[in-house]
Structures are given as structure tokens and as C-alpha cells.
Design a binder for these strands. Structure first.
Lengths: 185, 185
DNA sequence: TATCTTAGCTACGCAAGCGTTTCTTAACGC
DNA sequence: GCGTTAAGAAACGCTTGCGTAGCTAAGATA
């Protein structure tokens, strides 16, 4: 059961959404094709189930009175999560969205969509509530800046940003957008 | 020739990189499989050729003394380009980068990589040179803000941002990162 | 213990793509 | 007008995945 879910994700990463096969999953899970067909009728169904079980989503918890530090922590958390197999699997699925809308719907909404996927969001709302900056600054655009820059970095360099780059994102993009100058917090 | 290149891109969009077949391209181009094998030996090779020919990359030309206006124009240009078949094709290829490194290399570097793909970059360098803001602000992070947010928007909503959203990106993210307050230019 | 569910194996006919070979057909140069 | 060159068509044996069916072997339940 768990073996099959893992096999499905592995297969996804190995061959891509569009080339997943029942036989491939079965092979990888060291089980019989018939056993798969007993429970699911397509690779997509297996994948949805797999995604449902596989993902614990960590939430950043703004602790101290340190906006910059918490932002950096949130973005590092995102980066570390993105280095996970799971995250690469999500990326895989999302690109083929035109071909598998249902799959994307099922996966994206719980893993990378509205709720999750905005790691800085939790932090920003917290500090906005505590008067660290003007809450009117928290537009959808501003909430996305950190995550957007990390994603773009990943696309450009096929490698996730290091700590220094995350610092730069916070200091040069997020804090200015909040109306804060890094030096004079 | 041109028909084959177009067919290759169409096929790419229809079935994805990983499921492209010689027979599929031949079918779509209304030609014979043998004719394809005469010139290329794989679907990847055809794709590289196709990308080389298909892409004219428009360059934003900063004209007036209007930083904000030029930024908006550059991002609209990017958005319009992304709505192209070609751009969706690029996205398709980039996600499968683990499986087709050579293809990504060949395609990405000329179409969406270092040189191109940074639409605001041209504009920003221009105005930095004319003293509109402190040139030290032009870090790699800042140069990417606009593009990153447009890409993220596309991923989140499977739809590209409208003009109002682009305005918001410029006003709420880019200009603050340059140390400029939208109201008081 | 006898029975009943369920996982796993093997094999089936079918379809699609592979890369190649052979043959026909058209176009162009001299 | 003739010969060369390149494109298209058809078929080849081969492989891989499909979805289904029939069987065996456990393990739980009455």
C-alpha cells in the first residue's frame, strides 16, 4: 500500500506524468499489475492517493519579535521543502496541467495552492497584526514576492537558492515592498 | 520543413515532451516518417531545430522618460509573449529538465535564459544609467522581481495576469525595491 | 477445520511506436 | 529528354503497455 504510493511518486519523477504506466508502477512496487487494477483504474488515481498520504506540510511559526529573521526562516523552510522529492513531483504535475486538469486540481489545491505554498504569508500576517508595518501593504502581489523569486531562481539555475540569496530576497525585495528599509528596521 | 517544425511544437504542446513520437509528428505534418528520419534521428533533435527557427524575441525599448510606464510595458510584453504557443512549449521543456538536460540546455539558453527572459532588465539598466535611482539597487534579485511574479501568477491561476495586476507588480514590488515610492516618483 | 476473501502470478489478444527496407513518384539540372 | 536526387508510401519484425481472465496460495472468519 505505502509501497505502491511510493512507487507511484518514484515513477512520476523517473518518467514524467505523461509516461506513467501501470506496469511501471507495478514493477517498481514489486507487485502485480492485477493488484493495481483491483483498487485503481488509472495511474492518475494512484497519484492522487499518493499525494494525499505523502504530504505533511510544515507551517512556519512566527516566534520572536524578529520580522526579518522569521521571513528568512520561512523562505528557508520553503526551499528545503522544495528540495524534497514531493515538491519535484508537484512541479512535474503542474506543468502538464493542460493534459491532466483533474489531477492538478486534486494535487495543487492541497499541496501547493491557496493554503500552503505561501510560506511567508503566515509570517507577514502575524507581523501586520502586530503593527510592524502598514497592513495595507499586504496585497496579493507582496505576499507572493518571496516564493516567486525562489521559484524563478530554481527555474533559472536548476538549483535552489542558498542562504545568502534568501537573505538578499528578504532585504532587497520583501522588506522594501513593506515600506521598510533593511538597515533601519 | 517549416511545416515539420510547426508540427513538432504542436505535438509537444499536445502530448508533452515525454510522449512525443516520430509518428505523431509525421502525422501532424502530413508527411512520411521516413522523411523525418532522413534529417533527424530523434524527436529532441527536431525540437531543437524548431525552437531555433521559431523564436523572434522582442526587445523592450525604453523610450520616454517614464520608468513606471516602461516597466509596465515590458511586463505586458512578457505576458503577451508567454501567451504564445512558443512560451508554453518552453515551459513544457523546462519542467522535464531532469530527463532531457541537453534539450533544455539548447532551448532554454537561447529563449528564456540569461539573455532573454528578463524583460524588465533592459528597462532597468537604461534608467539606472540615467540616474533615476541608485544603480547599486540593481541586484540579480531585483532584476527578477517582475518576471518572477508573473510566472508565479501563471502557476497559481493557470492564467496570466491582467493589466491591473501588472500595475500592482510594478507599484508594489519593483518600484519599492528600487527605493522609489510610487506616488512621489 | 472448512470456507471465503484477497494478493499475486501468468498469459492472452490488441494497439502503437520503434527504426529499417523497398518501391514509387515527383522535381530539377544539364 | 534523361538522369539524378529527394520525398512519400507501405510493410517488416520487434517491443511495450493496455485491460482482462484464470489460476494459486495465504490468511482471516465462522
Amino acid at each position: 500500500m505505502r509501497a505502491i504510493h511510493e512507487a507511484a511518486i518514484e515513477e512520476l519523477l523517473a518518467v514524467g506524468v505523461d509516461r506513467m504506466t501501470m506496469e511501471g508502477i507495478a514493477r517498481r512496487a514489486a507487485t502485480a499489475k492485477t493488484s493495481l487494477y483491483r483498487r485503481w483504474s488509472s495511474t492518475e488515481e494512484i497519484l492522487v492517493d499518493a499525494f494525499l498520504r505523502v504530504f505533511p506540510q510544515e507551517e512556519p511559526s512566527p516566534s520572536s519579535d524578529d520580522l526579518r529573521g522569521d521571513l528568512v526562516r520561512a523562505l528557508r523552510m520553503m526551499r528545503d521543502w522544495m528540495s524534497t522529492l514531493g515538491a519535484r513531483a508537484v512541479a512535474e504535475v503542474v506543468t502538464a496541467r493542460d493534459r491532466n486538469p483533474e489531477l492538478v486540481e486534486a494535487v495543487y489545491s492541497r499541496v501547493f495552492g491557496e493554503r500552503g505554498g505561501r510560506f511567508t504569508q503566515t509570517v507577514l500576517y502575524h507581523y501586520a497584526g502586530h503593527g510592524a508595518f502598514d497592513p495595507a501593504r499586504l496585497t496579493p502581489v507582496v505576499l507572493d514576492i518571496g516564493e516567486a523569486l525562489i521559484i524563478k531562481h530554481g527555474m533559472d539555475h536548476s538549483r535552489l537558492p542558498d542562504d545568502a540569496h534568501i537573505d538578499a530576497i528578504v532585504d532587497q525585495a520583501i522588506l522594501p515592498a513593506l515600506g521598510l528599509v533593511p538597515g533601519a528596521g
